[in-house]
């Protein structure tokens, strides 16, 4: 564990708390992509299967349970409790275009051709693109509630912090994780447009609005 990794994890944790806070206080999941949230459930479940057969640390264990639990809870809130506030007609990104290629990539790029390793690779690739339905939705509506943009910013910053963490680990431990690094850089890259608007508008107190 190092400073960058910890900041990344805390940012990830914060993003989920902001998301749940947004749903609870506005009593609505307006502006959120159900598809993106469903992809995160798939990401966490396929990645954290090792919970059942491998002990890393209490920190690791608690965080994994939290990510699985909170993503399932979010899905439940969106699907049932605040269902009427979700508008499927603007959440139209085809997730087959994400899941299929990620599955193929995982079959090609993995550290061992075993079920758990292929699923782990799949989760890494899928996480890198899971935000696309949400960003696509944002692009369509052209605006977002401020709280939703805070959620997206925290979620984007999380993987960005993992990049210096990987560099640090390379120099201190001499290890690399090429699959996570390539996917993590791609994942962070997808947020660049969003970050630009977030830091130049929302952080200056303006509303998040995309140019027409």
């Amino acid at each position: 564990m190092n400073f960058f990794r910890l900041l990344g994890d805390l940012s990830h944790l914060a993003s989920i708390l902001i998301l749940l806070h947004k749903i609870k206080t506005t009593r609505s999941c307006r502006g959120l992509s159900f598809k993106t949230q469903a992809l995160y459930v798939a990401v966490f479940i396929t990645r954290y299967l090792d919970l059942t057969y491998r002990w890393v640390s209490l920190y690791n264990f608690v965080m994994k349970l939290f990510f699985i639990g909170s993503s399932c809870a979010t899905l439940y809130l969106m699907r049932y409790k605040y269902c009427p506030t979700h508008d499927p007609s603007i959440d139209t990104f085809k997730i087959e275009y994400l899941v299929g290629p990620c599955a193929i990539l995982a079959l090609i790029f993995n550290y061992k051709f075993s079920v758990s390793e292929v699923l782990w690779s799949f989760s890494i690739f899928l996480e890198s693109v899971a935000i696309l339905p949400q960003l696509f939705m944002l692009q369509r509506t052209g605006e977002a509630e401020t709280i939703t943009t805070h959620y997206l910013a925290a979620l984007g910053i999380y993987r960005a912090f993992y990049i210096p963490n990987w560099i640090y680990r390379y120099f201190t431990e001499g290890v690399v994780d090429p699959i996570a690094i390539v996917a993590g850089i791609a994942q962070t890259g997808l947020y660049l447009d969003f970050f630009y608007v977030y830091f130049t508008k929302v952080m200056q107190g303006e509303k998040f609005e995309l140019p027409a």
Binding site: V56, N60, K64, V175
Partner: peptide, 10 residues
């Protein structure tokens, strides 16, 4: 380069 074998990241 040695690849991380025991995955400890989230």
């Amino acid at each position: 380069l040695p690849v991380v074998t025991e995955k400890d990241e989230l």
